[in-house]
């Protein structure tokens, strides 16, 4: 069973989000890293790029798979986790520590519509 953290919100594309004020930090869930396998590369967005919720913002690659990461919320990229360029394995080792980007969100209300941990757990079960 993969780990789900209580204090985060989740998307159906297996991203996690934590919102503080209007700043959202985004990564991928333990379930997502486990299904991708050994991650070899994270393609990060450019700082200052703007995205609508659901637009492709980054992508993540293992040896045998490539998965897009869609913007969990709308807004402008404020910071990216550059350390992933040299050590993408951090996403495997600590999915909830290795965030991918930080976004200044334009619509904080989007956060409440994301799944909480219970809903995400149910979502994973339903999709097993």
């Amino acid at each position: 069973m993969s780990e789900i953290k209580d204090d985060l919100r989740y998307t159906e594309n297996h991203e996690w989000v934590v919102l503080e004020g209007t700043t959202a930090k985004v990564g991928i869930s333990d379930y997502a890293q486990d299904s991708l396998g050994e991650i070899v590369y994270v393609e990060l967005p450019e700082v200052d790029d703007e995205f609508e919720q659901g637009e492709e913002v980054a992508s993540i690659e293992s040896v045998k798979a490539a998965a897009p990461i869609y913007a969990a919320m709308s807004g402008r990229v404020k910071e990216v986790n550059e350390s992933l360029e040299d050590s993408p394995e951090a996403v495997n080792e600590s999915p909830y520590g290795a965030y991918i980007y930080v976004m200044e969100v334009s619509d904080p209300d989007e956060y409440e519509k994301l799944m909480d941990s219970d809903a995400y757990e149910a979502f994973l079960k339903a999709n097993e």
């Binding site: 070899v40 590369y41 690659e61 040896v63 045998k64 798979a65 490539a66």
Partner: peptide, 13 residues
């Protein structure tokens, strides 16, 4: 190497 870029994995992407 870097095969995840390629069409047999990414298909229409």
């Amino acid at each position: 190497t870097l095969q995840a870029r390629e069409q047999h994995i990414k298909r229409e992407r």
